[in-house]
Simulated scan of single mutants.
Amino acid sequence: MSANTVMDSMAARGGDTAGPSIPEQPLGLSARPSPTGSRLATLAGRDEPAFIGYLPYGFPDPDTSPRAFETLVRHGVDIVEIGLPYSDPVMDGPVIQTASRQAIAAGERIEGVFRAVQAVAQAGGVPLVMSYWNLIFHYGVERFAARFADAGGAGLITPDLIPDEAGEWIEASDRHGLDRIFLVAPDSTDERIRVAAANSRGFVYAASRMGVTGERATLSSSPRELVRRTRAVGADHVCVGIGVSTPAQGREVGSYADGVIVGSALVHTLLDGHDSNAASARPNSLDALAATTEGLAEAIHGARR
């Protein structure tokens, strides 16, 4: 109730309205600590980088998808990126594009992603959603934030949304205690990195290279320098993704980053185990995903030993 409402009520009852007024307070701001930052801090206390795994929601089919996310968590993934498939994925490489098309064809809808969020949270992982901004905007920013938080979501990665244009999302995420993860790239200016770091909550996503996602045989030295630059302007946590696909690469990146993000290698594993002519994934596809996840987890978590 505002100060004016209180004073009007007192006046209607003949009460004394003299004296100090009651200051209005900000409404709807959450005091919830950063779920992602808290998990990263716990791992840092053990000198371990986080393993962050990505899969598109609804892939390879609606029934298998929640079980795939649970498989990631149970076999070593700390933080899960749940991708919202999009018909025009400009930053995604061919592997993730194929999986996204498969999910859309199987009937994936944004309403169902909250089931995947709950599956990750119940399995003990930190659930993030990675989405192109157009999907969230058309769904309704406040509506998405409220549903996402209620389902146990931690935060949102927005690869095509920059902080300068994110006012509505910043307000909604503050209101619901959700993390905001913005991206920086090797060619980002120091000022652009500073703005991303100042407005991120949870971690800053450092893209290892320019271009689309996908598996790569080797990594350049640019992500290490990008992590250094991002920390220098005040970022608490910096995680590296795009192109990291093997245990050796995960170990290398984990030696200097707070978290290692792997997507295409996990998606590829499920693609290889899925029969596109069948109604669901092959029975051994989740076993293959578990094995790939465990190999990456062992290398990433042991990167500094």
Rank of each mutant, 00 (worst) to 15 (best):
R101E: 14
G155D: 10
V113S: 13
E215S: 10
I162T: 01
A99T: 11
L29F: 10
E108I: 09
P23N: 05
I110F: 12
D63Y: 08
E168L: 04
V73C: 04
G15V: 05
F69N: 00
L219S: 04
Y205W: 05
V80D: 02
Y57T: 09
F69A: 11
G37T: 07
P85W: 06
R39T: 06
Q118Y: 00
L40S: 10
F203H: 10
E142S: 11
A288T: 09
I193V: 13
G19T: 10
E298W: 00
L156R: 08
R216P: 00
S30F: 01
I52C: 08
D187I: 14
A206Q: 08
G76Q: 10
R147E: 13
E111P: 04
P20T: 13
A44R: 15
P62V: 05
I136V: 14
L135G: 08
A279R: 14
H176Y: 12
S9A: 14
D150K: 13
P35K: 12
R194H: 04
I242F: 15
V90Y: 00
G14E: 11
G37Y: 08
R305F: 03
S87V: 09
G250K: 11
T17Q: 03
S131Y: 07
Y205K: 00
I110V: 15
P283I: 01
R228D: 11
D8S: 10
A145N: 11
A297Q: 06
P283H: 02
R143H: 12
T218G: 12
S208E: 01
G259N: 11
L289P: 09
V80H: 07
D164R: 02
E225A: 09
V6W: 11
V80M: 07
T5C: 07
A290Y: 12
I96D: 02
F137T: 12
R32Q: 13
V238E: 05
S21Q: 12
G254F: 02
T36E: 09
A197M: 04
A154F: 02
L226Q: 10
P186A: 10
Y256N: 02
T218S: 15
I170R: 13
Y256E: 01
V240M: 03
G15C: 10
G19I: 12
S280D: 05
R39I: 01
A297S: 13
Q102R: 15
G125K: 01
R201T: 10
P62T: 04
R109S: 15
V120E: 13
E108K: 00
L128P: 04
A105M: 08
S222K: 12
G53S: 03
V260A: 10
R229H: 02
L286F: 04
G295F: 05
A281S: 09
V244F: 05
E111F: 06
A217V: 13
A198Q: 14
L43F: 08
G152L: 06
P26F: 07
F69R: 00
L72K: 14
V120Y: 08
V227E: 14
G241M: 01
I82W: 08
A288C: 02
V129M: 13
V117S: 07
V260H: 09
T230R: 07
T292Q: 15
Q102L: 07
G140H: 09
S245P: 05
T71G: 05
G112I: 00
D258K: 04
P60C: 02
L55E: 08
L29G: 08
R201E: 04
P62L: 01
I181D: 09
L296M: 08
I193H: 06
A103T: 08
A197N: 02
